[in-house]
Design a protein around this nucleic acid. Structure first.
Lengths: 343, 343
DNA sequence: CTGTTAGCGCCTTCAG
DNA sequence: CTGAAGGCGCTAACAG
């Protein structure tokens, strides 16, 4: 049926070991150019391709990383960001010669029943996309010595390696962009009432930039939900004396920024003439709207690459964990920011 | 190090074969309840979990399907739809006990150099998301007898199994919804000048519904690109006598519909008061906008499930290919459609 | 430089 | 009802 290494060996008149060495370009063993040629030819003639499974069984390594997606990936508000990140990881994995298999957060029921799914040998290690804070998945995997890297700052276990965009610096850069445009009343918007770690970090960057110029930071909360967003935006920008109204808005995501832009416009406020707004992530969501968004681009590919490198390092040496790689984002200036109307 | 089947066997005082039979709940071999108990206990005590790799080597089956993503998945216009579909497939795969590994279209360089990536034993078969028409990937995989199912109607090789939403019926339903609201001048919008097969099908459904009521179908082309969209929409709806202007618009995707709504609104036309608009896919993109979109929901989970079932059937019996499953979509009526202003 | 010898961890006949 | 034997396809020492 399918052609195996022994067929090639027979066809080339050599041993299986020799075939293996030739095809793996083994550095340790030197093979005569003539036999090497013969083996290569035989392999080609027979259409031979090694079995990754058999190979994995002996090498105890599959050159495969598992990606654990968040449970609620289906939420469209998350989809553009995770698509972008997922793409970056896929691309990086290909470049690093790694295969990718996908698990969803729903795969994780609890430690006892789910752990084995992640350590049946299919994958050499795991990349964790954002997991719910109340899940025991991280500590369980760490306890089980499964090589694992988080794609977000988990703000938790010291043993966990992770990569992340530099949220503080990124937010600072975004804020400084508005400051440089002459804005003084700049507000930072959270997406949740109990903010996630990355939101807090982004506020920190914002605060740093503001206080560095002697300005007072302030913040609000605007949720995704249309009605709640409306209710939150109105008091902050509409029912508010013009001379107290913020002229600059730092949002926590592109989705939030888009939503805010839409609401403001419907209330007759112009963006960017009256109010400048910035997003975060540059995940493509803004392409849907008429307003090109000034935002901070996350280095998706580089994040993926760094994460996989951290993981491979850990696979090679289990003690190499608890590492981190914080990568800079890039300010992308576009049509939602302009000089402050006060100038 | 890691506990293997022989450890369990020793611990339980039985042979490896017996352990295997017990743990696989083998139907052919009957095992005494007492030993079965003993084996189970031993396995639990030792924390034993079988190696999927070793298992795969003997069974020659990994219970894993490969998903081949389109090369340009990174395009955000595609991202919401493919996220939705991908999610449906992931969910279905989990329910059917299948693992998932992901390839990107970029993995496919050409037949000779890339084929082996898909047949090194990691995956039992492949699910193809939309692949470029000029790629030889489909014919090559079919020639190589790799079990494969397309997630779109490929409109090509008869040997290829595929699943798809019923584009014709779906489009008909959408059109009838507008007709029932009293619309008469309804236009169908393509997304490309050389339309893809699914776009053509959707126009067919539209045409059927129109002619069934004695109305004349017409179409236009509106591309994603902001400037091109603007240029296309204006002559069709703005520079046009009111009594000739279409009051209903059938779009090929949610993204397109959203774009069109935005442009019309900026030109002072009201949706749905002046013009009713429908999307296609219900992929969540509309959540970003203020206007809740009437659209046709694709049965993402069911599509995934059907595709995997077709694939498993094919894996069990290679001759079972060339099958198709066309699934109905669901009209989701929301805020972009209303009775025709002519009534 | 190349072949021999052992497995990797599991499953599947086939005897007992 | 259970165990022994053989092999899946490959790689990694270790000899020659």
């Amino acid at each position: 049926m399918s052609v195996s290494i022994r067929d090639v060996a027979a066809h080339a008149g050599v041993s299986r070991a020799t075939v293996s060495k030739v095809l793996n370009e083994s550095a340790t063993a030197q093979i005569a150019a003539s036999t090497r040629e013969r083996v290569r030819l035989a392999a080609k003639e027979l259409g031979y391709h090694p079995s990754a499974i058999a190979r994995g069984l002996t090498r105890k390594q599959m050159d495969t990383v598992g990606i654990v997606l968040p449970p609620a990936l289906s939420a469209p508000t998350a989809s553009t960001f995770y698509s972008s990140l997922f793409n970056g990881v896929l691309q990086a994995a290909a470049d690093l010669g790694q295969n990718v298999t996908v698990f969803t957060g729903e795969h994780w029921v609890d430690a006892k029943t789910s752990l084995h799914r992640f350590r049946d040998g299919r994958v050499d290690g795991l990349l964790l996309f954002y997991q719910p804070p109340d899940s025991d998945i991280i500590s369980t995997l760490l306890d089980a010595e499964v090589p694992v890297v988080s794609m977000d700052d988990p703000h938790g276990d010291e043993r966990l390696s992770y990569v992340d965009v530099d949220n503080i610096a990124g937010s600072r850069v975004v804020t400084e962009h508005l400051l440089d445009l002459g804005h003084q009343r700049i507000i930072f918007l959270y997406e949740r009432h109990t903010p996630l770690h990355y939101e807090i970090q982004r506020e920190v960057g914002y605060q740093e930039a503001m206080t560095a110029r002697g300005l007072t930071p302030s913040h609000g909360v605007v949720r995704y939900n249309q009605e709640m967003a409306e209710a939150a935006v109105k008091p902050l920008f509409v029912d508010c004396p013009v001379n107290e109204r913020p002229t600059g808005v730092i949002c926590c995501s592109d989705w939030q920024a888009i939503r805010v832009v839409g609401i403001l416009k419907r209330h007759g406020l112009r963006v960017p003439e009256d109010i400048s707004i910035t997003g975060f992530n540059d995940d493509g969501a803004a392409l849907l709207t008429q307003t090109p968004l000034t935002t901070l681009r996350q280095p998706y590919y580089d994040l993926g690459k760094a994460a996989i490198e951290l993981l491979l390092m850990q696979i090679a040496d289990r003690t190499k964990r608890g590492e981190r790689r914080i990568l800079p984002g890039t300010l992308r200036i576009d049509g939602t920011t302009a000089p402050s109307p006060q100038n």
